[in-house]
Every structure is written in C-alpha cells, then in structure tokens.
C-alpha cells in the first residue's frame, strides 16, 4: 500500500476480474468460498517440516485461474507482494532449528530451512487461493455467500457499505495527501501535526457524507431493512465442485502426491 493511486488501481483491477464470465465465475459463490476454505485448511494442516507434499496443491489455483481466464502475471505479482512478509518470519526458523534432517550429498539441510521453505510455499498457496477467490467471485458475491452461510446481516450490510466507499474515500484521501506533499518541501510538513488535521478533515468530510447517504436512504423509504435479490442457487454443479475438490485435497493431504509421483517416475527410469 505504498502508493495510494497504485493501490486504488490494483483494487479496481481485481474487482473488474470478477465481472468476467466463465464456468467458474458462474458457480454459486458459496461453493467457491467453501472450496477455498477446505483448500486452505488442507494446506496449512501439514506438519511444519512438510515440503514436497505441498506441491501437488498447486493444481487447484492454477486450474481455477486458467478455467476462469484470470491473467496469470497479475496473480503472480499479487502473490509476490506478500512473499517478503512470509520470508521475514520464515527465515528465523533456520536460526532456531539447526537439526540436520536431510543430507543431499555434501549438503546438510536443517529442519529450519525445510520449515522455512514450507512456510513460503504455504504463503504462495493460501494467498493465491484468496486472490483467486475474489477474482472469480467478486466481493459482493462473497458477502452474499457469507450472509447465506450465516453471517449476521448487520455485519454484511456495513461490509458492503465499506467496500462501496473505499473507492470514493481513497481517492479523496489521495487528493488530500497529494496536496500536502506538494506543499511540503521534502520531509518538512509531513509530520504529526499536519497529519492530525489532514486526517481530521478527512474524517469530518466522511462523517458528513455518511449523513448524506443516510438522508438518501431515508428519501427512498428506508425503514431499517435491506432487501436483496436471490441471484444464484446452490445446485448439483456446485455440490460437485465442492465435493470434487475437497476429496482431492483430503487425498493429497493424507498421501504425499509428489512422493508418489516421484517414485512412479524414478521407478520407471530405473
């Protein structure tokens, strides 16, 4: 979130991906939310020293992204942004965990390095799954799915309000911030005092906007209840989607697919 304008553009791009039309896009959002959950739980449930068994899980994000025709480069870039954070935590593992677990010829690999690598792969998989979920579903549909899965309406409705006004307010914030930067030479003027009043102004404007929105709601007969339409249904297709992937995930969780594949191939060669 370094550059404000960049962040806004990024948000808009991800949001627009969800308006695509594909087999995956057309599925009910609940199916995609549930599948993503099963996927993430399966991935993170591995022991900390598990490394190779994680690789077959790449099948899910890659296949989903391809079927939904999401731009691969964009997804990779999004994931790439998060890797440094995983690395910061993961790289501490080799310091504390120096037991040699595997020797590859002259190379002694400690548990710390294995678990560090494992953390990075986990990050890529879980972050990828989340990005793809939004890319093929859209925030509105995710919210609707959450509501149908039992989230209180008060929460989902204000979640939608939040999402709607992110676009308006970040642009407003970007304008204010730009104005401050342009009038402050170098670092001077970017301190706490100007920050407090800048954010304060922004807050007041936000508050007044909330009042106007409420006014607009009242003007159209709002009585405290939100009505929404039913757009899709959880049918056989959705059931098949969730069940199919879940079975695969559990199988891959219980049996190291990479190991199995590796032996299959090395066995063939020998």
């Amino acid at each position: 979130m370094r550059s404000i304008d960049g962040a806004i553009l990024d948000l808009k791009r991800l949001d627009l991906l969800a308006t695509g039309d594909s087999l995956i896009h057309r599925l009910d959002a609940r199916a995609k939310v549930l599948t993503t959950l099963v996927f993430i739980i399966s991935v993170v449930s591995f022991d900390r020293y598990e490394f190779t068994a994680l690789f077959p899980f790449f099948l899910y994000p890659v296949v989903t992204a391809s079927l939904a025709n999401l731009p691969g480069g964009y997804i990779v870039r999004k994931i790439g942004l998060v890797i440094p954070f995983a690395l910061v935590v993961g790289v501490l593992n080799p310091l504390f965990d120096r037991e040699v677990l595997v020797r590859l010829g002259p190379l002694a690999v400690t548990g710390g390095w294995i678990s560090c690598a494992s953390i990075i792969i986990r990050s890529v998989l879980t972050v990828g799954a989340a990005v793809i979920l939004v890319g093929v579903t859209g925030f509105l549909a995710v919210c609707q799915a959450l509501e149908k899965l039992g989230t209180p309406r008060t929460f989902t409705v204000q979640l939608l309000f939040l999402y709607r006004y992110i676009f308006v307010l970040t642009e407003e914030g970007a304008r204010a911030s730009r104005a401050r930067e342009l009038r402050s030479c170098g670092r001077k003027g970017l301190g706490l005092a100007s920050f407090g009043s800048l954010i304060g102004h922004l807050l007041i404007r936000t508050w007044l906007r909330a009042e106007r929105i409420h006014m607009a709601m009242l003007a159209r007969g709002f009585t405290g209840e939100f009505h929404s339409r039913q757009v899709s249904a959880f049918g056989w297709r959705e059931l098949g989607y969730v069940a199919g992937w879940s079975i695969l995930f559990v199988a891959l969780r219980l049996e190291n697919g990479a190991q199995w594949l590796g032996r299959l191939v090395t066995g063939l060669l020998s």
Binding site: M1, I4, Q158, L162, Y165, T170, L202, A210
Partner: peptide, 17 residues
C-alpha cells in the same frame, strides 16, 4: 449502518497516508 461502513472505508484511506 452507513456510518460504520463509510468509516471503515475512511480507515483504508487514512492508512494509505
């Protein structure tokens, strides 16, 4: 309800500055 949502969006905007 709208106030909460809009203030949430405000937090986003504020965090970027």
């Amino acid at each position: 309800i709208p106030l909460m949502g809009v203030l949430g969006a405000f937090i986003f905007a504020a965090q970027m500055i």
